[in-house]
Write a protein that binds this DNA or RNA. Sequence first.
DNA 1: ACTATTCATGAGTTTTAGTCATGTAAATAA
DNA 2: TTATTTACATGACTAAAACTCATGAATAGT
Lengths: 308, 308
Amino acid sequence: MERDIPIPSISVLRCFEAAARYQSFTAAAEELGLTQSGVSRQVKELEDQIGASLFRREGRGIRLTHAGKTLADSLFSDLTRLRRTISQAVAAGETQELLSLAALPTFATRWLVPRLKDFKIRRPNLDLMVYSRAEPFDLVEQGIDVAIHFGTNDWPGAKLTPLCPEDLVVVASPALVEENPVSCNADILNLPLLHMTSRPHLWKVFQKNVPDATTHVQKGSYFDQFSMIITAAVSSLGAAILPTYLIEVELASGSLIDLATVEEGSDHNYYIATPPGELSPPAAEFVSWIRKQVSRRVGQGAKTPKPW
Amino acid sequence: MERDIPIPSISVLRCFEAAARYQSFTAAAEELGLTQSGVSRQVKELEDQIGASLFRREGRGIRLTHAGKTLADSLFSDLTRLRRTISQAVAAGETQELLSLAALPTFATRWLVPRLKDFKIRRPNLDLMVYSRAEPFDLVEQGIDVAIHFGTNDWPGAKLTPLCPEDLVVVASPALVEENPVSCNADILNLPLLHMTSRPHLWKVFQKNVPDATTHVQKGSYFDQFSMIITAAVSSLGAAILPTYLIEVELASGSLIDLATVEEGSDHNYYIATPPGELSPPAAEFVSWIRKQVSRRVGQGAKTPKPW
DNA sequence: ACTATTCATGAGTTTTAGTCATGTAAATAA
DNA sequence: TTATTTACATGACTAAAACTCATGAATAGT
């Protein structure tokens, strides 16, 4: 219904609105940089389209009719909105399309970045920026569209969408295992242990599930990056407890062996963190894509058999 | 600042908005009744004006850019508003400037209408329609701009603005008083009494303030219009309790004498009733004017001395 | 490989916007 | 009262914008 009413031209609308403000075609023409004649014609055109007098011609002047006044008021705000819409589009015109991402350093390096090529294929003209972050931060302030968060469901100012749990496993190199045969979980605790400084309780958790374990699990080497621990493990420095997401390549190549599963029993998970409000199309697409990446991976992880 | 940004033509904006919805110039052209070529050109024109790509040309199709999506969303609502503005103007196009009023019959006849001439002087081109109404009604449905309401502050669907209280007085003609000397309120009750059928308790109220009054106040003549009662009183048929607003002329000329004041003690007042929402300019002016009429009158009424 | 589809663009036509000149009526000044 | 100025309306004409037709280039599907 409304779709069938032709909208008068911008020129017509502007001439009328200006004439309404001044109650003078001559003054309106001066403001618009036209001639009085042009303004007069456009107003007459509008009156014909509307089908009513918008001005009363009194003497050599004009006065708005009731209809004219009503229309002028509405039109003033409509034109103002339209100008704002266009102005904002022009101002944003130079902005390059960009997606800013953030994740834990090792996760970004080993899991996310290697997969971004697949995402870029879907969005060839989209520029990506990837930042490593260890703790929650202000997404809006930092201009981040999407962050991959590991931790609890607690990030003020962000919307968290569960991505997946962390799958922890005990791994060691084949060489280490050959040198120190492992036939049960207790044997693992006799290996040199590799510790993550930010996760000191991991070996204790594992020990709790090992009957009659008396070993002091605090012994061993400590590192503050999982990527270092991975390298150390591959180098036979010890056994490590690592998230499977970070060692997919090593497990697949056999440079690391999955010795046991670790049930941490905490509420730490991987989350997608996004700023409040509606996602931009690229961000929304990224979120959708990364969820597919995870569901694909989870299926594989569940089928890895123990080496004994 | 915003005033200097040229607004693209309606044609340009519509072509873009339609193409954005369909993500297809061909489909948009079909909806707009144009050729694909025309739509393509107009979108290109808009991209030149904005200074940014609004669509990515992917293969033989188009996809909105981030900038394009943002603009399309805003533009959709802007164009919708503009269509509504124009549609309403077209619909109102036949409406003559008119102010519709409603009031109680006698009030309209004796108070309002005689004063309307003064109001018409201020609005020479405004047509007035005056309706008599005894009860609240749907202002919008009846197309009434302003109603003068007597009663309680209770008119569903209307905005009530207090206008003034009802000043009730006992009056009689000089001839009746001469024939039946009145020196106190008790003497009044011995006069023939004139009753308003819709206000049967008025004389009982008066009697309550008269010490040792034993007269049956129900005796006398009954009428269903105050205008009849006024005529009856002037004709010496009896004493009447009347709102002063209705007998200003008679009191001034002496054809009726103010014998006593009646304190009804109810919450009935005169109100201005208007439809919800903002008043039209004529209606707003009327309300302002009528309030001035009342404040002028109230001052006079308070100074009328008793005749004994 | 062939056919159909869709956007882009040259060339040309139609429509709209706007100017110049003038007419008419009023408002103001002398 | 007359003369001059002002302001809207309109005929004739010009310039600019909107749009069509035809065609090219690239893709998508069979």
